[in-house]
Design a protein around this nucleic acid. Sequence first.
DNA 1: ACAGTTGCTGCAATGGTTTGCAGGCTGATG
DNA 2: CATCAGCCTGCAAACCATTGCAGCAACTGT
Lengths: 339, 339
Amino acid sequence: MAVTIHEVAKGAEVSVSTVSRAFTMPEMVNAATRRKVLQVAEELGYQPNRAARGLVTGKTGNIGVVVPDVANPFFSAMLKGCTARAREVRHVVFLADAAEDPRIEAEVVGAMAKQVDGVVLCSPRMEPAQLERLVGTTPIVLVNRDEAGLPAVLMESADGARQALEHLAALGHRRIAHLAGPAASWAGEERLRGLRAAAPACDVETVELGPFPPTFQGGVQAADLALARGVTAILAFNDLMAVGVLNRLAARGVAVPEDISVVGYDDIEMSSMTTVPLTTVRMPMEAAGRAAVDLLLDGLEARDSPEPARRWLPTQLIVRSTTAPPRPEPGSAHAQAGR
Amino acid sequence: MAVTIHEVAKGAEVSVSTVSRAFTMPEMVNAATRRKVLQVAEELGYQPNRAARGLVTGKTGNIGVVVPDVANPFFSAMLKGCTARAREVRHVVFLADAAEDPRIEAEVVGAMAKQVDGVVLCSPRMEPAQLERLVGTTPIVLVNRDEAGLPAVLMESADGARQALEHLAALGHRRIAHLAGPAASWAGEERLRGLRAAAPACDVETVELGPFPPTFQGGVQAADLALARGVTAILAFNDLMAVGVLNRLAARGVAVPEDISVVGYDDIEMSSMTTVPLTTVRMPMEAAGRAAVDLLLDGLEARDSPEPARRWLPTQLIVRSTTAPPRPEPGSAHAQAGR
DNA sequence: ACAGTTGCTGCAATGGTTTGCAGGCTGATG
DNA sequence: CATCAGCCTGCAAACCATTGCAGCAACTGT
């Protein structure tokens, strides 16, 4: 059905080798011959079959990407980075959605392994041991997870948390709740680390709540708990939770940012669309996707480098409208009289 | 590097043919032999190389999916449906993000064509002529677009618009704005068709505005125009626009749903998370993705059927909190005195 | 005119898998 | 015991592309 290299060869009256070379090693074939070949190929609509090439060269030009959930904006942004970068370097991507299931994660990389040059694992949920088993199957790069021995692109989650905390502290907040996400989250641990490290210097007391599901519902659930603890600001695990918090707070009649400040994490699209736009720390998800495929491809070139490459991407606090100075305490010396 | 059928054959002391058959035509090989083969394969961690199989059988077990923008929740939901269904039928998906560019769309299906059994094109932006050219390259099924001669899965957009309109009419609205999306959108045309068909029967006057970009910004821009036209309700092209409308309305001090009703379209995740949850018509995006891969695979089986298959999926109005009866007109006979 | 380059091209092997065909073994039938 | 029909199994060709090697022509320098 589809047109092969043989038909082009026949059409251009050359051997298949020449056709092949015309595409992959242009300088090796006579300019006139090449022109002819390319022209015939164009007319016939020939597209090389990369699978066949992969068989002989060992390089397929495909890369695998597995995400826990494509419908999650955090991951779809990452995925977008991967596909965009892959296209730039003339690769195509195999996608697998693991449906948040560690077993599926392992299974799909096995299924893809033979057809790709390597796979990028976004926030893999699986155990280190399982991960270990996958290495050797095919080259791997991790995103948003740090496992000894594996190349990874990481985001400075801890630093983001620090920025958020300092921002809040500078506004005058002294008692801040942190709503944790899933216990197993690497990024979550990092954030907590950053928070704990920065808290003393900022002279703030953190109230650690959770874990909660990293969803809108998780946020509404957490809001009440935070409120009961008498904090003036809330740091949510991610934007989805933060939006849940915002909603619950509105429902209970507490004003944001007047009564309480809220900051999210990730900066998904939605964050700028809430009725009062969300202050959040931006994670460079798309950049992470791009970096991951670069790392993967570089790693394939340079087999030699002993220690696994890792790329750190900066995070940045985006101040919007859900943060403000806390209401002055009634008896406080600093209470502003006028106004 | 990777373990091939040959090593399994050696390990199980049989020929490669037998190993191959043990996997693909189990009933043809002796039960004991098969057990042995499967066991050795398991031990060695053998995974068949589907690319090689594809070369000889012409069926790769891969399907291509191209979307205009993975980061768009509408498409990521569709994509999720595709990947989920593909996994169930033991296929893997090749993903391409066309970045909303018709040229890229055409290009990527060309690039994938040889490696997949067919491709599903989600809301393709390209011209009918271009589309035509692609047919013949590889089997294709369309989603959310109706082009003569091609199998497609379609959503009853017109009916969704009808439901929304009737809902609004039943609440008492008589003058309703419709905010159109991109002019080239098939779904948009369908909706308009449904709207126009239903309006007379409902005794409502529609004010057709647009086209606008189908985004948050498009919505804020459109809101002012709608307001100026003195409507009591707004039907937006999609939820993103509706959220933009909501925001702009809030900023201008008009209360939703008291002063004006708003209904969106699509029912993306975000719709239920706005401070006042959005009334919208639900598009079965994930179901559409699943249906698309089914249609594609069925089409491959039954080459014979002459007329292209098409699957229509129902849409459904989801009433949440942005719709309510309009404020009674000051001089109206029906104005409620008490209260 | 000759040997040595240089530049281009074709032959044939290669990769991992499927599959048509033929051969071998077992057991049943006569 | 001969025949024949299943069953299984192996051999070898095929799929599409890449690439080392060798061949060939034209050109260089002498």
